[in-house]
């Protein structure tokens, strides 16, 4: 059996807005093993981002248990969670969130700056390797504002990889990109999943993308509606090759 990376037990998250309580998550349970590529889908407001923030240790659940890589997150304080994020999690955002006027290398090495175990030299080497992995080996010194959206998202992926996380979390990572570039990013993530063995959770609105992942979880109104494994994962690269070059 493969190693279990995430285990969630009856996770609940309530937001109190004024007098009202919003039940964003009403009890979610599942576990994710090493090497899985999970897509999470659901209508707007169903609680996907809330779930991802909990998995990413940015937020704490109102109720329920969460184990990341065997560690119970519930009992951790703010600083411990920050360290946990730094060592075990890679985030990819819809809006890239690169530092402006900063080179690709400097952007990528940012997570390692907050890890005093990594020397400046190692930091640089690992950043360059991560950038090479996402196909930006020739753009190391480009500043973020000198790159296209797709390239910026690749830099962001490299940044998510650089700390060798146990899991990569992507919240609508292709939401701002056109179809072709979306598939380029998806191809990259698929390659990182199969070749590098990275575990990925990918939140998306696009139902088509379920075919490209090994597992699909659908959320509705704060509960899991379906959780299905995909026996025949489609190759994003093949789809990309079939797409017209110019549209």
């Amino acid at each position: 059996m493969r190693k279990e990376i995430i285990r969630i037990e009856d996770l609940k998250r309530d937001f109190v807005v004024g007098e009202e309580t919003v039940h964003a998550l009403r009890g979610v349970s599942f576990s994710i093993c090493e090497g899985e590529f999970v897509t999470i889908m659901g209508t707007s407001g169903s609680g996907k981002s809330t779930l991802l923030n909990l998995i990413g240790c940015l937020d704490t659940p109102t109720q329920g248990e969460y184990y990341l890589d065997g560690i119970s997150v519930k009992t951790m304080n703010k600083n411990q969670r920050a360290t946990l994020r730094n060592r075990k999690i890679g985030f990819i955002f819809q809006s890239y969130n690169l530092l402006p006027k900063t080179t690709a290398v400097d952007n990528v090495q940012l997570p390692l700056m907050y890890n005093s175990d990594v020397s400046a030299k190692e930091r640089r080497q690992r950043s360059i390797r991560a950038l090479q992995l996402v196909g930006l080996g020739d753009r190391l010194q480009h500043k973020s504002n000198q790159m296209s959206g797709g390239q910026q998202q690749r830099v962001a992926i490299a940044r998510a990889l650089v700390n060798e996380p146990v899991i990569i979390l992507a919240d609508e990572a292709t939401g701002n990109l056109d179809t072709r570039t979306s598939f380029e990013i998806l191809t990259l993530l698929q390659r990182l999943n199969t070749e590098e063995g990275r575990t990925i959770i990918f939140v998306t609105h696009n139902p088509e993308l379920a075919e490209y992942s090994s597992r699909n979880i659908v959320i509705r109104d704060g509960r899991i509606k379906s959780d299905t494994y995909n026996p025949s994962v489609r190759s994003a690269k093949e789809t990309l090759d079939k797409l017209p070059k110019q549209d």
Partner: peptide
């Protein structure tokens, strides 16, 4: 603000 959010998400503590 967003930069601060990003830094926190990749592991910066409040103290940092």
């Amino acid at each position: 603000t967003r930069e601060i959010g990003l830094r926190m998400s990749i592991g910066a503590k409040g103290f940092d």
